[in-house]
Design a protein around this nucleic acid. Structure first.
Lengths: 282, 282
DNA sequence: ACGCCCGATACCCGCAAGGTATGCAACAGA
DNA sequence: TCTGTTGCATACCTTGCGGGTATCGGGCGT
């Protein structure tokens, strides 16, 4: 199968609309229709039901959308990794590590320092990315290794190694009644109608409905907490990033957050192995 | 990147020779040369060193060969899985299970019977394949799930679930001195110069050098054991397939063999989940 | 019933993929 | 060192296919 056909099909399957898909692909609609029909002939099965609007996927179409996305990502990954391998061969070897922007830097700093002191260490490019973006970067070859937090992040399809596990704390305004407690429960925090949970923007920039304030950044969130507007439950390592006008109280029954290092399976990069050895010693 | 270019590059990288690669691809050599050069321009880096013969891979070339193979397999997989999904939608749902030909059928038979009795079970196509072939079939989409035996089989890149673990036995000719023992060690078996280890054919059909007899099949092997020509260490479940003129003696220090079910990560097939649930109850 | 939306069809064009002929550089043998 | 052979690159031609425009036809809303 040709990757072009697959790319076209994925576009149509995602848009559920030939015209919009064609626009997204930068081609006209008729050649797109033709290519999809060619693909269907080649596979010997229809992928789309056009008899009702909007067009819908057949069973085979659903499968091809899932598997095809993975295949296209693998193609991208091959291209990017080869390109980066070329850079590493000329300008000195390096690896790219993807971490969530705003995540705890303590553990990471220790790891990077320790690794840099290793005899065969290479330069580590640190790639800050949005929430949940790390797995995509790992899959499409923009990163070699990532720091993830299951079960928030989905690690299926990657090799992983656990680095740390920690409890969670509720971040409350200084002076709030609960700050006198040694610990609280998740239910208690959820029931605080005076401090409703904040709402983060979704992928498309819109917000879910709810009583909590809309936030775009961590500093904004901390300010809103200090102003008695909201509260949040976060890993305890966030303590080092807190302002003095907010207080962290352990949440006794919140799920423990694990920090894992993840990399694509059968990645044979020496640098990843080195990072792992270093991490194992910490 | 176009899959055609990648296919061409992989052919050249595997053959280390433009002419042979072109022949394998069914095209002439000049367009192949041109396509590889286009790919190199697109990536902005040379992939092959042509200044000495045979042509050799650059660092980027090595990476692209590895990653590119995986990407091409993912493409194949998408195609095959979509095609099979279409079949499943018309002719009743089914899954394809890959097992090594000649492996123990006891556990498998129990599993399949139990699964068939489940309320939402579907027909299971059993695909017999050569040693180490299961992972390839899983990767390229010819199979949905497989029975593997790590550490013999490489399971990196798959989700797995352990089904069973068993010790190993030495299969000896009836009447051999060691058959009176309750157990033996691997070293003792290796030191039996009168019964050298058998030699299996490699992928290309040739055999490694050594004193042992060349064998192609299990029945051949058993006959050679009965004839006092060789011996072999195998999982204890092989006992049910032995003839009466050979004897199995536990090897006390042989690594335990695990039987795992493996499937591609983020495969969402209900049938695979059903098989797993059934397996968990056995 | 009418009009609109949207995918399919018909037809044309240009380019890039593939073929043939040949040049030129690298290894092997003397 | 010279020469022949092997093997990748270059030059040039041909053609099929990917893409564009114009238009048709069917489903759905009003």
């Amino acid at each position: 199968m040709d990757s072009r056909e697959l790319r076209y099909f994925v576009a149509v399957a995602e848009e559920m609309h030939f015209g919009r898909a064609a626009q997204r692909l930068g081609i006209a609609q008729p050649p797109l229709s033709r290519t999809i029909m060619q693909l269907e002939r080649r596979l010997g099965t229809p992928l789309l039901r056009r008899d009702s609007r909007p067009v819908t996927l057949t069973e085979a179409g659903v499968v091809l959308l899932h598997e095809g996305r993975a295949a296209l990502e693998a193609l991208e990954a091959a291209e990017h990794r080869a390109r980066r391998a070329a850079l590493a061969a000329t300008g000195g070897p390096r690896v790219t590590l993807a971490i969530k922007a705003g995540a705890s830097t303590e553990l990471l700093a220790k790891l990077l320092d320790a690794y840099a002191a290793e005899p065969d260490s290479v330069y580590v490019d640190v790639l800050l990315c949005g929430p949940g973006e790390q797995t995509r970067l790992l899959r499409n070859g923009h990163a070699d290794v990532a720091i993830l937090h299951p079960p928030i992040d989905d690690t299926t399809g990657f090799d992983t190694e656990e680095l740390a596990t920690e409890g969670q704390v509720a971040v409350l305004p200084a002076g709030h009644p609960l700050t006198t407690r040694t610990h609280v429960t998740a239910a208690e925090i959820a029931e605080l109608t005076d401090l409703p949970q904040p709402r983060w923007p979704r992928r498309d920039g819109t917000y879910a409905d709810g009583p909590g304030p809309e936030v775009q950044s961590h500093s904004q969130l901390l300010q809103l907490i200090a102003l008695n507007r909201t509260t949040v439950i976060a890993p305890e390592s966030c303590r080092s990033q807190l302002r003095t006008d907010v207080v962290a109280v352990p949440v006794i029954d919140a799920p423990r957050i694990t920090t894992v290092m993840a990399w694509p399976p059968r990645s044979r990069l020496r640098a990843v192995a080195g990072l792992l050895r270093t991490a194992a010693r910490l």
